[in-house]
Design a protein around this nucleic acid. Structure first.
Length: 576
RNA sequence: GCCCACGUAGCUCAGGCGGUAGAGCAUUUCCUUGGUAAGGAAAAGGUCCCCGGUUCGAAUCCGGGCGUGGGCUCCA
């Protein structure tokens, strides 16, 4: 499949060079998620998505011609000459940088020549089911200082049937998109007047968030965390001490400056505030591990082009905690943090996720601390994962500036990857803030810090859950747990009584007393994806029962009390 | 920030090659009281994202902003 897609990328480049002579082609790999390929071009004249149709039909024509994919190993000089003749500067750069030795592997497809290791399908005739999707900008070698190329994305499959299925999947993903559902279900809103990346939580969205926060905070308290509240701002000096003002500046807002010289900064992270809480007392080894938690607001100036719905915002509430512990306790604390994240994932239905161990690269200016500390921290994280039987990938250069981290990666409805939660080991901030505890022998020692966001940021978690459940949240989370609908107005009083009984049991219930037909009330409740719909009419008034139907429209007649018992148990257990 | 696309009523969208706009849903009111996915009627609702320019005239054309969506190292 990867071979097929990679070959289709070549086909795309062949079509483009025929239609737009003089276009330089850069790189064109197959990609796994989302499944497809891209090719980056340097066009003489910019193209737009409306040009894709013509390129695609040229691709089809070449495919039908059945041109073979022919591999050749050219002597280095010969390869350079060939690409120079064609004016393919990017390929020349790649040969210079990436190809060692004398043999340069190239592929020919008719006149089109590409630097490529292969392998490929044998003929363009094998490429039957593909579609060009969109064009976007991409920097040469991912570097913003280098020229921006035009990237064309497409997808390719073995058969038309598979392609159709994939396109169908994309349509379905569109329906689950949290931005769409957030609007349809009135969960959140965005408004120019408030600003980009600053979504508003509407009442139903806020209800879900409150349930999530209660769940999270209660569980953390049960696991020995202490919850605190700290302000969203601090003097800029606090972030100078932490190093954020120097190493994290690109994400920080300009400070608020006052006449008397005071400089206040919106915090991009919570750690410095929590460190200050640690230092409000002289700590003993008996106090450790000290786990300070807060669902704290953070402010990060994300580049405007990266903002997306609730997923990437400029102000968010992180389910954060900082664990201060002795080096001996470190491993257990890391494991405990992973275990908590696993527990949250299980209850919230985050079924598909994987771990990335994010480590530093060799760019010295980006990181604090010495090599040994990083090694120890990294070893601890890796060992914790391994001892828990968990597999992980490595992301070089993706560590926090003060230490390596374990990231929990998830995918949204479109299968785009995001970090949802994280566990980080930090030897640096304890030093920068001169943290201490009194050890058993009476000497002062330095604690280690673990930063962790077990359920991630509320905004991103919310966007994930909207897509995970397509708006049909588990009962404990759903903003409206029950709708009571009457068959006709004369039963409204009974319906209000049913509503009052449920409300007394802390169930979120709406009584639909509109003078509409039952059909309409059922439809509206279904569109809101309400977990339970209760219908009351003459029969129910007479028996004191309710007619209950779930999302699958399975109807059952039961006494009001047994319904209350059933739904409250479901909510209390946070059943999915 | 950069590339491409988009921005018309609360929502989803028509329309408009320059002569100040329309539908459905939602909202309000009235009628209707109907047992499991849209009962009927009427009313109200718009600086056509913003600011400039061209023009007798701009929502439409041009320029500049703002915002939204997709993308911006899965690497021969």
């Amino acid at each position: 499949m990867q071979i097929l897609r990679h070959s289709t990328a070549h086909l795309l480049a062949a079509a483009v060079t025929e239609l737009y002579p003089g276009t330089k082609y850069a790189i064109g790999p197959a990609i796994k998620e989302p499944p497809g390929f891209y090719y980056d071009f340097d066009f003489a004249e910019p193209i737009s998505e409306s040009d894709l149709r013509a390129i695609e039909s040229r691709m089809r024509r070449i495919a039908q011609e059945g041109r073979p994919f022919e591999k050749e190993i050219l002597p280095r000089e010969k390869a350079i000459e060939e690409f120079r003749k064609r004016g393919q500067d990017y390929k020349l750069e790649l040969i210079a940088d990436k190809v060692s030795g004398d043999g340069v592997s190239v592929y020919r497809t008719g006149d089109f020549l590409d630097l490529c290791l292969g392998p490929h399908v044998s003929s363009t005739r094998d490429l039957k089911a593909f579609k060009l999707q969109r064009v976007s900008g991409a920097y040469w070698r991912g570097d913003e200082k280098k020229p921006q190329l035009t990237r064309i994305y497409g997808t390719a499959w073995q058969s038309q049937k598979e392609l159709d299925e994939y396109l169908k999947f994309l349509e379905e993903a569109e329906k689950r998109d949290h931005k769409k559902l957030g609007k349809d279900l009135k969960l959140f809103a965005v408004d120019d007047r408030v600003g980009p990346g600053l979504p508003l939580w509407l009442p139903d969205g806020a209800t879900i968030r409150r349930e999530l926060e209660r769940f999270i905070v209660d569980e953390e308290l049960a696991r020995g965390y202490q919850h605190v509240r700290t302000p969203d701002v601090a003097r800029l000096d606090l972030f100078r001490q932490s190093g954020h003002a120097q190493l994290y500046a690109e994400y920080m807002y300009p400070p608020m400056k006052f006449e008397d010289g005071e400089e206040l900064e919106l915090r991009p992270v919570n750690c410095p505030h929590h460190i200050v809480i640690y230092q409000t007392e002289l700590r003993s080894y008996r106090d450790l591990p000290l786990r300070i938690a807060e669902i704290g607001n953070n402010w990060r100036y994300e580049r405007s082009g990266t903002l997306a719905g609730m997923n990437r915002v400029r102000s968010f509430a992180l389910n954060d905690a900082h664990i201060f512990c002795t080096p001996d306790q470190l491993m257990d604390e890391v494991k405990g943090a992973i275990d908590l994240a696993l527990y949250f994932s299980k209850v919230l239905g985050i079924d598909e996720f994987w771990y990335q161990l994010s480590t530093r690269d060799n760019v010295k200016e980006k990181w604090l601390g010495n090599e040994e500390q990083w090694q120890v921290a990294q070893a601890n994280l890796a060992e914790a994962l391994e001892s828990m039987g968990q597999q992980y990938q490595t992301g070089v250069g993706e560590a926090a500036f003060y230490g390596p981290k374990i990231d929990f990666q998830v995918r949204d409805a479109h299968r785009r990857e995001f970090t949802n939660s994280t566990v980080q080991v930090d030897f640096q901030l304890p030093e920068r803030f001169d943290l201490e505890y009194v050890a058993e022998d009476g000497t002062r020692k330095r604690p280690v810090m673990v930063h962790r966001g077990a359920a991630g940021a509320m905004e991103r978690l919310f966007s994930y859950l909207i897509e995970r459940y397509a708006g049909a949240f588990p009962t404990w989370l759903h903003p409206t747990q029950v709708v009571v609908a009457t068959v006709k107005d004369e039963f409204n009083e009974y319906a209000r009584n049913v509503g009052a009984r449920l409300r007394a049991a802390r169930v979120r219930v709406e009584v639909d007393q509109r003078s509409e037909r039952l059909d309409r009330k059922v439809r509206d409740a279904k569109l809101k994806k309400v977990p339970y719909l209760v219908v009351v009419g003459a029969k129910e008034v007479e028996s004191g029962h309710v007619n209950v139907q779930n999302r699958a429209s399975e109807k059952v007649d039961m006494s009001l009390e047994s319904f209350v018992e059933m739904i409250t148990a479901e909510i209390a257990e946070r059943r999915r």
